[in-house]
Simulated assay, not measured.
Amino acid sequence: MGSRKGDFGDGASPGKIFIGGLAKDTTLDTFVKYFGNYGEITDSVIMKDRHTGRPRGFGFITYANPSVVDTVIAETHVINGKQVEIKRTIPKGSAESNDFRTKKIFVGGIPTPVTEDELKNFFAKYGKVVEHETIRDHVSKRS
């Protein structure tokens, strides 16, 4: 592996982003050159399959200056002809702490016969439901 600068592995630094949807032929060199246009990079990796060694289509970039992340996220990025998806990384442990909280959950695959009240009552066992909505298809009215 060699020595790496940065804190890859202990969660995330404020300057770290996730890049998904990478073309399989994207090299680390191309990856770093592309994102290096935005600012100084302290760490970079394209994740590979443990067994085959082939790229898994996603990686991480860590910038020295965390404010660069806002600029990168605001733009659309196409690398090797493929649009990639960019997200902030969430530091390990923050999901349990108050740094990162959401009160909203998404529930998919709800059977059509389930009513809004049945859904609300099911989740009410876990805490107070303040808002719920079943999204329905405009034409078929199915959930």
Results as ranks from 00 to 15, higher is better:
101 R>I: 11
5 K>R: 06
48 K>S: 14
110 I>Q: 10
69 V>F: 09
134 T>Y: 00
57 G>C: 07
25 D>F: 03
25 D>R: 10
85 E>G: 02
26 T>S: 07
105 I>D: 06
59 G>C: 07
10 D>L: 05
80 N>M: 08
14 P>Y: 02
37 N>L: 09
117 D>S: 10
39 G>F: 00
142 R>V: 12
79 I>D: 00
127 G>R: 04
115 T>R: 06
89 T>S: 12
103 K>S: 10
34 Y>A: 05
2 G>D: 13
94 S>K: 05
87 K>S: 08
135 I>V: 15
63 Y>P: 00
53 G>W: 07
53 G>M: 03
136 R>K: 15
53 G>C: 13
30 T>W: 00
94 S>Y: 06
94 S>G: 05
65 N>W: 03
125 K>W: 01
102 T>D: 12
84 V>D: 00
77 H>T: 13
53 G>E: 03
33 K>V: 06
91 P>A: 12
26 T>D: 05
32 V>T: 13
42 T>S: 10
21 G>R: 07
37 N>Q: 07
136 R>F: 12
74 A>E: 05
125 K>S: 15
57 G>N: 05
41 I>H: 03
15 G>C: 00
37 N>T: 10
54 R>T: 15
139 V>D: 09
9 G>P: 09
102 T>S: 14
51 H>S: 14
100 F>R: 12
127 G>D: 11
129 V>I: 15
140 S>R: 09
26 T>H: 09
18 F>A: 02
16 K>L: 09
66 P>Y: 11
89 T>R: 00
7 D>V: 14
100 F>S: 12
8 F>R: 08
67 S>C: 00
14 P>F: 01
106 F>Y: 12
89 T>K: 01
44 S>G: 12
119 L>K: 06
80 N>I: 01
112 T>W: 11
49 D>E: 07
123 F>Y: 15
134 T>S: 06
124 A>I: 13
123 F>K: 09
21 G>P: 07
133 E>M: 15
26 T>G: 06
98 N>H: 04
51 H>W: 11
96 E>A: 12
116 E>M: 13
101 R>Y: 08
143 S>R: 10
134 T>P: 03
23 A>G: 02
30 T>L: 07
112 T>L: 12
18 F>M: 01
46 I>W: 00
73 I>S: 07
39 G>Q: 01
141 K>F: 05
21 G>M: 11
143 S>E: 03
135 I>L: 15
94 S>A: 13
75 E>D: 11
29 D>Q: 14
2 G>V: 07
59 G>A: 08
115 T>D: 08
30 T>E: 10
96 E>N: 09
27 T>H: 11
79 I>Y: 01
109 G>L: 04
140 S>P: 10
36 G>T: 11
47 M>L: 13
54 R>K: 14
142 R>I: 08
98 N>G: 15
35 F>W: 03
83 Q>L: 10
131 E>Y: 08
107 V>E: 06
133 E>G: 08
17 I>K: 00
113 P>R: 04
143 S>D: 00
106 F>W: 03
93 G>W: 10
80 N>S: 09
17 I>W: 04
111 P>M: 05
126 Y>F: 13
120 K>R: 08
53 G>K: 07
76 T>Q: 14
66 P>R: 05
1 M>T: 14
50 R>P: 00
109 G>D: 01
51 H>G: 01
91 P>N: 07
138 H>N: 06
23 A>S: 10
134 T>D: 05
37 N>R: 13
19 I>H: 02
3 S>E: 09
130 V>S: 08
